[in-house]
Design a binder for these strands. Structure first.
Length: 480
RNA sequence: GCCCCCAUCGUCUAGCGGCCCAGGACGCCGCCCUUUCAAGGCGGUAACGGGGAUUCGAAUUCCCCUGGGGGCACCA
């Protein structure tokens, strides 16, 4: 996107508050910034907005970075911590106070909140009522002498219109008369988002601000602040459509996993996650869907960002993940499975056996977690083996179940121990039962579930003794 | 209550005045393949919220309505 108004290299930033793990919505925002930077050969800055001491936690700073790294979103500068730049915000606040663009406010948060609620109850518009806006110096002294807390509030313009051109939405305008004065420095002296954000975007030379639509309205306030600060031409803004749940409400825990970490733990590949997230609010100009990060970056353009909220579709993500699993070189898949297998079965995991699982299971897997679970019957000690309840009822209700198990055991006791040798179809044919009817019972007895890894390969991997043992157990249980 | 944004299949989306009685993908349904379940192949179901206006012509432009979402913190 060539933009004469902002010459020079593109500089974008991702600026999360360290108040929790990285949400998929935030990850999508980070991704779009990264894509934009990479597409233009620009700079991607990571900035931590930790000005809210009450909610920010240092451990989240690391957690967020880890999630970004996992996704593959490498940043070129930072992380800058706003907590380490307080002097700059303090200086800016003083300038605003000196120029009269901001004023000291002696209202407590509780008082402001109470008045807002009263306004709401009376169906009046909430927002700071301007009580301290034009205090006389004498009055200010009295209030200060009372020991009342003193915050700094920005005086928004009394009239006129604020407008800016959003790169995805076009011109956005709002009447200043509808925008209340807002706090830029807390009574404890710490800066509030608007101030720190305006100062940093300016000082860091940010050329494009790409963020969620929930920040659309706040842009006018930040723009006014910059203007009051005499900051020069502002960055271009691009507000991304929100990501919502299946009910179109803001994406939250009750819609299932929302933290990037949850998806990682659930066995989703970062390639799939990135690919899926890129398609939430953006699409290439052709029909490609399964795309690698570099491919997406090459095709990425803010012009093609959607305007309306996107509902998170777990089913499509799962499909996408399967696509990526199937594309992985087997050794790569194995490497990703190993830590997961060790965590589940202990350090003694048989690497060769796991390699076999990859061989027979890669093409059918949807997540790493599901693939490992399908191999439970191989890795768990025999004492821990048990047939899932629903699979057992499937087995028990199978026609001529006892005969089937007997015949299968009979065959496996003497056959050659290869995938061809353990092929059960001839046995079932002799019995006169269809594989479709009888096999789920064998699956249940041997794998503990009626659906899973390919049966004959599984039997070969399990070994003759263990297989026969499980068939015998199932047979015995059938008698009781 | 006030302000802002948005509106194509169930979902993600293509479409930027005629190529569209609307294309792709996920899901769903059916068939094929088959070692259950998957995966794979083939086919099918399914949408321009409503009303005006502009135009020879509107999913595409404008207005109104309706609907959805966001914001209105000493959160970001």
């Amino acid at each position: 996107m060539d933009d004469p108004a902002t010459p020079g290299p593109v500089r974008v930033r991702f600026a999360p508050a360290p108040t929790g793990s990285l949400h998929v919505g935030s990850a999508r925002t980070a991704l779009f910034n990264w894509l934009f930077a990479r597409h233009h050969g620009g700079v991607f800055v990571l900035r931590i907005e930790d000005t809210d001491a009450a909610r920010s936690r240092p451990e989240w700073i690391e957690g967020i970075q880890e999630s970004l790294r996992w996704l593959g979103l490498d940043w070129d500068e930072g992380p800058y911590l706003q907590g380490e730049r307080l002097d700059r915000y303090a200086a800016a606040a003083e300038r605003l106070l000196a120029s009269g663009r901001a004023y000291e406010c002696f209202c407590t948060p509780e008082e402001v909140q109470a008045r807002n609620e009263a306004a709401r109850d009376a169906h009046r518009t909430p927002g700071y009522d301007g009580r301290c806006r034009d205090l006389t110096p004498a009055r200010r002294e009295v209030l200060a002498a009372e020991g009342r807390p003193r915050s700094l509030r920005f005086r928004t313009p009394d009239h006129g219109t604020s407008r800016f051109t959003d790169l995805v939405r076009g011109e956005v305008a709002v009447e200043w008369s509808t925008v209340a004065d807002f706090v830029i420095r807390r009574s404890d002296g710490s800066p509030v988002f608007f101030l720190a954000n305006a100062v940093d975007d300016s000082e860091m030379g940010i050329t494009h601000v790409i963020r969620g639509e929930d920040l659309l309205d706040s842009t006018h306030r930040v723009l006014a602040l910059r203007d009051a600060l005499g900051d020069g031409p502002p960055p271009r803004y691009a507000h991304l459509p929100l990501m919502v749940g299946s009910d179109r409400a803001k994406l939250s825990k009750r819609h299932g996993a929302v933290a990037l970490e949850d998806f990682r733990a659930g066995g989703y590949l970062p390639e799939a996650m990135l690919n899926y997230l890129a398609l939430q609010g953006w699409a290439p100009d052709d029909d490609r869907e399964v795309m690698a990060a570099g491919e997406i970056a090459a095709a990425f353009d803010l012009d093609r960002v959607t305007h309306s909220a996107a509902a998170f579709d777990h089913a499509k993500l799962e499909w996408m993940n399967g696509e990526w699993i199937r594309r992985l070189p087997p050794d790569d898949l194995l490497a990703r499975l190993e830590p997961r297998a060790r965590e589940r079965y202990g350090d003694g995991v048989d690497a060769e056996l796991l390699r076999d699982v990859v061989r027979i299971g890669q093409e059918r897997a949807s997540t790493l977690a599901a693939l490992v679970e399908q191999a439970d019957f191989l890795f768990e000690p025999d004492e821990a083996f048990e047939v899932a309840a629903d699979s057992w009822s499937r087995l028990a209700s199978t026609e001529r179940a006892s005969e089937v198990l007997d015949a299968v055991a009979g065959h496996l006791a003497g056959c050659e121990w290869t995938a061809e040798g353990v092929d059960l179809r001839p046995v079932l044919a002799e019995l006169g039962v269809k594989p479709r009817k009888a096999l789920p019972a064998v699956y249940a007895a041997v794998e503990g579930r009626h659906a899973g890894l390919p049966l004959f390969d599984s039997i070969v991997l399990l070994g003759r003794d263990r297989t026969l043992g499980r068939l015998a157990d199932a047979r015995a249980r059938l008698e009781t």
